[in-house]
Amino acid sequence: MAAKTFPIEAGHIMMFARSIGDPNPVYYDAEAAKKTEAGGVIAPPTFVQSSAQFDPDYFLRPKIGQPWFGSGKNPTGITRAPGGGGGGGGGGGGLHAEQHYEYHRPLRAGDVLTATTFPGKTWEKEGKRSGKLVFSESVTEYRNQDGELVVTARGVGVRTERPVEQPAKKEA
């Protein structure tokens, strides 16, 4: 995920915290957050993933005037869906296999980050439930307005040969 400018906005943090079911006031109440150890509104640990909103080329967001692979009149808006349906941490289709974060300093409302992504290793494995698996790694450095490293993120995406078979479930 690359973004030249990733503004850390209080309203965005509030919506993100709601979506993960976290009512902690440190994510939305500036007055209450002042009295905490954090000293102000901060972002939850996985918030930097939403830098996707500020990546102009992020491929899992419909773009104005461009075809989109989700359903409308037809089950998909393009003749061939990318890969197994597109997705996750990898490029070009697949699923999110791993995500790792290192936190160097708190991420605060009002910070303005820059996200720079570096490609990592790729490797293959034979999967029991989805055929051949192709893994690809990327590392993203998030720096603040002072050039300080705030978060280092390492994501691993996986492309599967076929949809993942589900483990046997107990019948309810």
Partner: peptide, 12 residues
Amino acid sequence: QYAGASGDYNPL
């Protein structure tokens, strides 16, 4: 809700 907040609109 998570799709909207995170920006990951994958139809999956």
